[in-house]
Structure formats: C-alpha cells, structure tokens
Design a protein around this nucleic acid. Structure first.
Length: 917
RNA sequence: GGACGCUUAGCUCAGUUGGUUGAGAGCGCUUGCCUUACAAGCAAGAGGUCAGAGGUUCGAAUCCUCUAGCGUCCACCA
C-alpha cells in the first residue's frame, strides 16, 4: 500500500486535497465499508434516507450524512458489525419533471413518446445522470456499504411494493373511490394531504348577490374568496340555528351568469359568524362543500380541467380560461350586473404543492387510498411505550398528534414514472358478468379475467406515491418478501430492525411515521409476530437540525443562500466541513451556518496535523521505546499521568455524548482534549523533557507515550475526521498493509488511569504558570526579556514537590529561574500573585512602572473582595446556616478562609508596593 | 385557533438533576510575540443587570406563572 503512505516529510500546512481521495479509494477498494452477517458481533445498522435520484448534495445532506457516518464509524470502532445501507429514491414527480423538461427542449412532451418510451427514457436518464449525489457522498467520506446500494425501483423493491399493495387490499385497507383530493394543476396529479403546504395570503373576500327565484329585486349575499367556483355551485347553505336565515331553507336562488337555479339548504358546518352566514356550495371543488353535497345529495359539477382551466361545464365565454383569469372576468361581469356587493381584504392561507409550489386545486376524482387508522394505532404504541425513542423527545408530541387525527392516505398519482398500481380492469367482451367490474388486484399481471375469462385487460393507469415504496425501505433493502429466494434471509434477520434513523423532522409524517406503520404491519420475522421490538423498523430516531443561513433563513435553492457543499469541501477539506457541521449542530436546535465557519474545522485539522508533525520530527530524533500495551507507563511524571487521566475522562465523556446523540458535544470534547489538553499543555511539557538532559531511554519512553496518547486520540477523532486521522495514524507508526484506522478499536475508558489528585496538582501548576503569564502580559514584558520568579512553598506545596515541576513552570511561563522562598524575606519591589495560598514574586526592579503593578493588584483585590463579601453575606445569613446542607456550608467556610488569606496577602503586597522604600 | 422551540459577551453557541460556576468557548476586537509542530499559530486583555415582570427557595441563567420578540409545525370559516 505504498501509495497510501505519506510521501515526504509532513508539510507545514495540512493539505487535504490528495489525502482525502487517496484514502477513500483505498478504503472502498479494500472492502472496509462492507458489513456481513456475523453472529459473533452485535449488528449496528442505519439505512440512509434515500436521496432523490435527481438530487445533488446540499447542506442538509451534509449534516445528515455526516451524522450517520460519524455514528457508523464510531460503532464500527467499538466492536459492532456496523452496516450503513445506501440507496436512492425514484422520486416520482421530481424525476418525471426533469425528464419532461429535457424533452421540452426537443419540442416534445411525454405524450409524443407514449408511456412505454417515456419510462424507458427516464431509465436512460437515471443511468446517465442519476446518482450524482452518491458520488458526492463519497467525497464527504461516507462509509456506506456500497455493495448493498439499492434503488426504490429495483425489481426486488418493486416486488415489495406490489406485495404490500395486494395484502393491504385483501385486508380491506386499500380502497378506491371518488373524493376531493389535492390536485396540482401543474404536475397534473393528485397529491396527499401531507404534500400540501399552506402559506398566508393577503386575499379578498367577495360578497356576491344571488337573486331569489320568484321574488323580483330580492337577493341574498354570499361571501367567497374564490368567486370563479360559483360556476360549479349547486346550493347555498345556512346554519339551521341561524334565526336570520333559517326561514330561507327550501327556497331557491338564481345562480348568476349561468341561468341555473339552486336550492338553499341547512347544514351545521356553516359558521353564522363568518361572512354573511350564507355559504355558496361547490361540491366538486371544495372539501367542506363536498361533504355538504353528500349530506344533501347535491349534484357535483366539475368546472375545471386537469390544468385548472374552466371546462365545458361552464358558460362558453369562460370555457378554456385559466382559473385566475376566469376570476377577473367573472368579477367584472358580476360588477356589471350589479351583483358584486362589496370586496374586503381578507388574509387566509392557501395550499401549495410542496414540489412545485403551484396553488392546489381541490379536485373531485377517482383515487386509491390507504385506511390509516388501523395502521396508526400500533405505530402510536411503539413510540408511547418507548420501543422507539425520539431524539429530541419533543417530536413525540408532534407524532402523536398527527397519528391521532390521521386521515386516509391518497396513494395514486397521475404520473408515468413510478410503481404502477398492480390493478387490472376487465375491458371485457360479451361474457362479462357483474363481477367483471371489480378491479383485479394481483402481484403479477393476470392473463385473463377470473370472471369472464377475457384476455382483454387494462392496467390501472396510475402509479403509486413515491412514499409508498419509501415506507418499506428498512426491510425492502434486504429483498423482502423474496429474501429466501435471493439468499438474504440471514441479512434481514440480522440487520433488521435497524438501530438509528437520522432524518430531518420535516418528513416525520411522510416517512418516519409510515415506516413505523409498515414495519409493524409487515415486520419480521414477517410471520405475524406481535413482538413489537422485533418489528419496529428502528429503535432511535435522531431528528437533525435545520440548516439556516446567517440571517436565519432556511437554506434553499430558490433563495440561493446555500453554499455548494462540493465547493466547501474543495476549499476547506471534507474533514473540516464535517467537523464544523458536527460542532455547530446541537441536538434539536437549528444551525446558523455560514461558509466562514468552516475555518474552525480547517484550523483544527491543521492543528492536529502539526501535532503529528511535532511527534514525527521528534520521534526521528529520539526514537521510541518498545510498546507493551495500549499505553507506555514507564518513567511517568505529573504531565504523563495527567494526560492519561484526561484521556480517560475524554473517552468516557465521548461515549456518553454518543449515547445521547449529542454530536456537538462529542466534537467539542474531542476538540478540547486535542487542542487544549494535548497540544497546549502536554506537548509543551513533553518538550521540556525531550529537549532537556534526560537519559535517552527516558526520552524514548516519553516519546512513545506521547505517541500512544496521540494514537488513541486519533482513533477517537476518526469518526469525525476520517481522513486526516487515517493519514496521521498511518504516518506515526509502522502499520501492516491491511491495517486501517477505520477498523481499529477506540480504546475503552479505563477508570484506573483516572487520577483526581494528579489533576488537582496539575491544576496548581497550570495556575502558577498562568499567573506569571498574566503578569507578563499585563505589564507588557516582551518574551525576549528575562524574568525570574520566587515563590513560597507552604506545607500544601512543599519545595521538594515543586522542584519536580520546576522545568515545566520555567518553560511554559518563560521564566529564566525559579526559586523557592524560605523564611519571611520577600523580593521587593515585585509583581505579585497568590495561587492556592502560595505567593509568587516577579522582581520588577528596572522592568516596569510600579503604578501598573499597583493597578493590577487593586483590580485583583477588588475582585476578591467582591467574592468574599458574597460569601460572608451567606455565612451571616441565619436561614442559610439553618437550612442549607452541611457540605454546602462547609464548602462556603473553606472558600471564605481561602479568599480571606489571599486577600490579606494581596493587600499586604500592595502596601509594600506603595509604602515600602 | 392549537402545539412546540428559542431569547446568555458585538456574532454563533456551551452551561447535566438549583449550591466547587467566583457565568464559559469559538469567531471578532485590543496588546505583545514569525518562541526550533502549527501566524490556519502562541500568550495576555477588554466585553454579560443570563429577553422583561412576578413567584417558589436559605440560594435561580437553571424550577413555576405571565408578558414581549423571533422561529417551526398542525388546524382552518367558504
């Protein structure tokens, strides 16, 4: 694997450009992403939310897939058989639209090609251009098991769709009927209730007079936002309890512009408060009116065609007009006839197609539906019982609310691209019976009508909603229901249920809820088992954040406010983009994203890179002691024991954060450990031993331990930043040719290496160093200027102990000599500080103006005085002493005495400075 | 109309069950440093009445109520 080894001495600045593609290709070629049935290991499975085959990577994908990859890599490195199953969705409307657009450039429509050739054309398009996103995911570093890649229109997945359709039909859970559905006049198809998005619209309410039949000059007035639909009115309705109007029930009115007469009916749904309390009823074009029409057996007059232009059921002068144009004309005509009483502003919300944003038209048509109530109940139970958990939990309420008030799912689409509905109709011949009018629902195309034997059959023209295949995804990817025939039965039982679903909350209804329903209905052992835990499609659902721009707007193509992910990766590197995303994405909160934030990740990658450089350069100088275990523990001193202890608590915290899906906390924890603990403190301390006059074998032990800890930290980092971690992991030590960090183990947290006393002692050393740095910084003493420090060494910090860290304090605080004070003599004049009761003196003679030191001390005294008075207020508060727990009081007393001591010393030093000679 | 979320330093956010938090980090800002891993860096510093009001408590950024602003979802009366 020579091509995967770093070539030259590591460059000063990390350049991901050749590193990332090189490792990805190597991993994929070596089969490291692949997972297999393996009873010796616990499986951990994620199915990708299949992106649209037309899709290109956007920031939402970056977030979503980085999270999934991070989880998968983490699990893979902690002993699981981790399997991430990728794939794509055929995306009915979206894909059909793309191909229709390309046809349009040739001046053709799909109808010119006919159904069969058009569908072939879509497949061609898919082979040629589809799946761009799958390559883009590779750039991001996604460790998907590509051998298992699926497409929702694959043969096996299509068979699953037919199986489910037939079984639901046979159980009476699928039915066909003529109902009002949401019609998209642009896409020429029905869409489900959930595919409609409502937007507020500043519209008008039009008051229109309908003259009474037989009462010249008298009329009633209805109010409507959609005057054009009046052409389809077949009644006017009033509330039966409305005293103003109930006497009108049974009378008739002239429907203006049409010459028709329509009745006045009474119906409870009419709100007397709204408008005039009189409602025009258009059963074919309004969901409420539809039901009023059903109750009163009113005729349904369809007045629009599939494009929402007025049809031949309307007066000739309006026929063929678009609905909005018709509205204008009708208003003009009503005005002219004196029938438009008034027009008032009216804000209301208008439904739009979630795909193309066209205003939805309620439309009466024959469609297929799934009865949802029976499916919803177990799905509710699965979440309520905690068999499936949501992160963050608040989505449970949203989920419950939707399922409790669920409506039937319109699954038929008037498209050509998709799973064609497995239903045939007998077109018949002379022998047709009454049964021949029943649809023939079948897994495979029937040859003859079972009733009359006719071979003259016609398949239903419609295809199924795209989500009708997506909801089967967690088990259809394993060839269900044909898993036995394809040899995937073991995979199905091993990898199903999946463990974690990572998805955006906006598809909780479309996809998440329906997958749960499908899993519980058809779930394995697929033997009618009622064991919910085995049937649910996943156990945890992680709802990702929404990615917004710096102004808080949702990132979208139409706003053009989204950075192009591949450009980001080109500029910053995939590791940087991934890390930044994880760092910014708190569980359940939206992400305010901007391109520049990637500097965080880029800088971090570079920091790690340079830590690696430091190790390599020094390893070449001093060599490395032989390794005996995970960590070399020979010749440990304070810094060594401290970094080992810090590593352990970091490992534990990362495990905890992963378990709670707190990706952002994982990122912060790893970042802080590597940057602040490892680089800022530990490496600096290692230097003082490496560059000092320690014996060679001690240096080698120090070196080897520094490498051990870095090695472990790289493994911990790998799920977040796979590329730079592999590159360095390979570089810092000889690895076998088949070794990869992606299949190495993250060390288990080892409590025996945790050492509270060591961390406390190190804390003291660090504070001493910081105190000297503070003096240097505030007094603007340049680093080139030597300073000396004298400090007291009281019983808590005896000189013989402090001497062991002398080198560290000298090096890190840039002190040329450090001495310990005995007796009562104190350097004077000097800058001073108090750390844990010990006093530090930096002799100032000739270095700086004493006034600066005086100001510095006064500031510190003020601060301590403030704290102290707060503590004393508590300790003199009787109710505090009476009611607070013992340990809290004891702690306050300790603080009081420590701060009092500090204050006394600070004040004394200030007096020395001011008054002393 | 119903539900939910957010409001902490100029910006983006941490702050686990109320008390070792004496409110932190990154970016930005000021100052000093190209100190033999790293200027994509190092060190120091300034900057906050924790949205507002009330309450519970010995003690509230943290718990409760209300208010305001921002955001999201659901429902919807034509």
């Amino acid at each position: 694997m020579t091509e995967t080894r770093p070539t030259a001495p590591l460059a000063k600045v990390y350049d991901p450009h050749d590193v990332e593609p090189r490792w990805y290709a190597h991993w994929e070629r070596s089969g490291y992403f692949h997972a297999e049935f393996n009873p010796a290991r616990t499986p951990y499975t994620i199915v990708i939310p299949p992106p649209n085959v037309t899709g290109v990577l956007h920031m939402g994908h970056v977030l979503n897939n980085t999270l999934q990859d991070t989880l998968i890599r983490y699990k893979r490195m902690t002993g699981f058989e981790a399997c991430w199953i990728p794939g794509m969705d055929h995306a009915g409307i979206a894909t059909q639209a793309v191909v229709e657009r390309s046809l349009a450039k040739e001046g053709k429509t799909r109808h010119d090609l006919g159904r069969e050739r058009f569908v072939e054309r879509v497949w061609e398009w898919k082979r040629k251009y589809g799946g761009v996103i799958v390559q883009q995911l590779r750039t991001l570093g996604a460790s998907c098991d590509w051998e298992r890649e699926k497409f929702t229109m694959d043969d096996t997945l299509s068979a699953a769709v037919r199986e489910v359709f037939v079984r639901l039909y046979e159980e009476g859970l699928i039915y066909r009927g003529k109902y009002i559905v949401n019609w998209c006049p642009k896409d020429h198809t029905a869409i489900s209730d959930d595919e409609v998005t409502y937007a507020d619209h500043q519209g008008k309410l039009y008051y229109i007079r309908y003259p009474f039949v037989g009462e010249e000059g008298k009329s009633l007035t209805v109010a409507t936002t959609r005057p054009e639909t009046m052409l389809g009115d077949t009644a006017v309705a009033v509330n039966p309890k409305d005293d103003r109007y109930k006497h009108l029930v049974g009378k008739r009115v002239h429907l203006p512009l049409t010459g028709r007469e329509i009745p006045i009916v009474a119906d409870e749904v009419v709100d007397p408060e709204f408008g005039t309390g009189l409602v025009k009823v258009t059963p074919a074009h309004d969901p409420n009116d539809y039901w009023i029409g059903q109750r009163h057996k009113l005729p349904q007059i369809t007045i629009f065609d599939v494009s929402a232009a007025l049809n031949e059921n309307t007066p000739e002068k309006y026929s063929g007009l678009d609905r909005f144009e018709a509205r204008k004309r009708i208003l003009v005509d009503l005005q002219a006839a004196g029938l438009l009483e008034k027009t008032v502003d009216h804000a209301h919300s208008v439904g739009h197609c979630y795909r193309c944003d066209t205003v939805i038209e309620p439309y009466l048509s024959d469609q297929w539906f799934v009865r949802m109530k029976p499916l919803a109940e177990p799905a509710l139970e699965a979440v309520r019982s905690g068999t499936i958990r949501f992160y963050p939990e608040r989505w449970v309420k949203v989920y419950e609310h939707w399922l409790e008030s669920i409506r039937d799912w319109c699954i038929s689409r008037q498209l050509w691209w998709g799973h064609r509905i497995p239903v045939w109709y007998c077109v018949g011949d002379d022998h047709c019976t009454i049964d021949c009018r029943k649809p023939i629902v079948s897994r495979t195309p029937p040859e003859r009508c079972p009733h009359c034997g006719s071979a003259n059959l016609r398949q239903d023209e419609d295809v199924l909603d795209t989500w009708f295949s997506s909801w089967l995804w967690p088990f259809s990817v394993h060839d269900w229901p044909a898993q036995e025939q394809t040899g995937r039965a073991k995979d199905l039982s091993y990898f199903y249920p999946t463990d974690t679903l990572v998805t955006a909350p906006d598809i909780i209804f479309f996809w998440v809820a329906r997958m749960i329903m499908a899993g519980l209905k058809f779930g394995p052992g697929f033997t009618g088992s009622v064991d919910m835990a085995k049937n649910v499609p996943f156990r945890d659902v992680y709802f990702t954040s929404l990615v917004r721009d710096e102004k808080g707007r949702k990132m979208s193509k139409s706003l053009g406010n989204s950075p192009e992910p591949l450009e980001l990766i080109e500029e910053y590197g995939a590791d940087a983009v991934r890390f930044t995303m994880l760092y910014l994405a708190p569980l359940g909160q939206d992400v305010m994203y901007s391109k520049e934030k990637n500097e965080l990740g880029r800088n971090f990658a570079n920091k790690i890179w340079n830590a690696g450089r430091f190790l390599l350069l020094n390893r070449d100088q001093v060599g490395e002691a032989p390794r005996r275990g995970e960590y070399n523990t020979e010749h440990c001193d304070l810094a060594d024991r401290w970094i080992l202890s810090r590593l352990q608590s970091t490992l534990a915290q990362v495990n905890e954060a992963f378990a709670a899906y707190e990706a952002s906390k994982v990122a912060k924890t790893v970042y802080d450990f590597l940057w602040h603990d490892y680089c800022d403190w530990y490496v600096e301390m290692v230097k003082s031993r490496l560059y000092g006059d320690e014996p060679a074998d001690v240096k080698r032990a120090v070196m080897s331990r520094a490498l051990d800890v870095f090695d472990a930290a790289l493994r911990l980092l790998h799920p977040l930043m796979p590329f730079v971690s592999e590159e360095l992991w390979q570089a810092i030590r000889q690895r076998a040719s088949d070794e990869t960090i992606m299949r190495a183990r993250i060390p288990e947290a080892d409590g025996s290496l945790l050492d509270r006393a060591v961390e406390d002692q190190m804390g003291f050393v660090q504070e001493v160093i910081e105190a000297v740095r503070n003096i240097r910084g505030e007094m603007a003493i340049p680093p080139s200027r030597d300073i000396t420090v004298a400090m007291t060494a009281g019983p808590a910090h005896p000189p013989e102990v402090l001497r062991r860290y002398e080198g560290y304090m000298q090096r890190l605080a840039r002190v040329s000599s450090l001495s310990f004070l005995e007796g009562t003599a104190r350097p004077h004049p000097a800058a001073t500080a108090v750390v844990h009761g010990e006093e530090l003196f930096v002799p100032l003679e000739g270095i700086v103006d004493l006034a600066v030191e005086r100001a510095r001390l006064e500031k510190e005294i003020n601060r301590v005085t403030g704290i102290l008075s707060g503590i004393r207020a508590k300790l003199t508060n009787e109710s505090f002493l009476r009611k607070a727990p013992e340990d809290v009081i004891a702690r306050e007393r300790e603080k009081e005495s420590a701060f009092a001591t500090s204050l006394a010393k600070l004040s004394h030093n200030l007096r020395q400075l001011s008054g002393g000679s």
